[in-house]
Design a protein around this nucleic acid. Structure first.
Length: 275
DNA sequence: GTGCTTGTTGGCCA
DNA sequence: GTGGCCAACAAGCA
């Protein structure tokens, strides 16, 4: 599920209740694949007794900082979630990491286990974090950088290229479709075939969709919506992409769904045309 | 049972 | 070496 804005939503959910709290106990699901090469017992030992200092989200990843130079990295994969439960919570089947604080309980849950947990000890953030591409909403995301990347990936459909995290960090399947729909670009267009005006539209809509999604899904400032996706307007493609007979909110004509670049893609044929 | 699913990776091939 | 494609990972849901 989680793309840029959903990831930020989950980060805030932990941040709001846990900032400054001490980790009293850590439960790990020993067999869970989300820990990959790491030894879960080390994580448990290292975090117990530390204090939750701060957190950050970048692209589809999160980094939680604890006192004493302990860092917890989380990638939610396809089905991961961060939840907050009341103290005394008993872990369920797919809860792979449970942090009991002096207050609420922080839970990482992920049925499909495509997610990842990483641990790092040291004064500075880990290398895998600092290597994440600069955010789409940062000045480093320029039309020139986008144009150059589209040329390099010129033979691939633009839909597939938008999913490449090295240039479009945080964009996932639904955001890619939303961007192309707003920019009126057909998802099957080869990346190298986009005209300069189309590249500029794509760049602008990338930033626009990121900004809208963050505000709508993760809330502004300290505000946190009660649930994911509750406030998404019907003027977005998002609310129609899975409908049996979805209509384009702009043209009111039927939407089309097809696999492109290995992912189910939804677009509005009346608006997004092939040359 | 069948056929999907908002992600990433490694292997294969041109 | 580079870039594009796709199966695999795993569990739940309709």
């Amino acid at each position: 599920m989680p793309e840029l804005a959903e990831v930020e939503f989950f980060r805030k959910r932990w941040q709001q209740v846990a900032a400054g709290k001490t980790i009293r106990g850590v439960l790990v699901h020993q067999q869970a694949k989300v820990f990959r090469g790491m030894e879960p017992a080390v994580l448990s030992k290292s975090l117990t007794g530390t204090r939750f200092v701060s957190s950050a989200a970048s692209a589809k990843q999160m980094l939680f900082r604890f006192s004493g130079g302990a860092w917890l990295g989380v990638h939610l994969g396809m089905s991961g979630e961060l939840r907050v439960e009341a103290s005394g919570y008993s872990p369920q089947k797919h809860d792979h990491l449970v942090l009991a604080t002096s207050g609420p309980v922080l839970v990482f849950t992920d049925p499909r286990m495509f997610g990842r947990i990483a641990f790092h000890a040291g004064p500075a953030a880990p290398a895998w974090w600092t290597r994440i591409a600069p955010p789409i909403l940062s000045p480093a995301f320029t039309t020139g950088a986008v144009a150059a990347f589209l040329q390099r990936r010129g033979r691939a459909p633009i839909k597939a290229v938008l999913l490449m995290q090295e240039r479009f960090p945080g964009i996932g399947n639904w955001m890619a479709d939303e961007v192309l729909w707003r920019a009126a670009i057909h998802p099957k267009r080869l990346a190298g075939s986009l005209q300069p005006a189309e590249v500029r539209r794509l760049w602008r809509e990338c930033r626009h969709v990121c900004r809208l999604a963050l505000d709508t899904i993760a809330g502004r400032g300290r505000h946190l919506p009660p649930d994911l996706n509750v406030h998404i307007p019907d003027s977005w493609l998002f609310n129609h992409r899975w409908e049996q007979v979805g209509l384009c909110p702009k043209t009111k004509k039927p939407l089309q769904r097809e696999e492109i670049g290995g992912r189910t893609t939804c677009w509005s044929p009346a608006r997004q045309k092939l040359p």
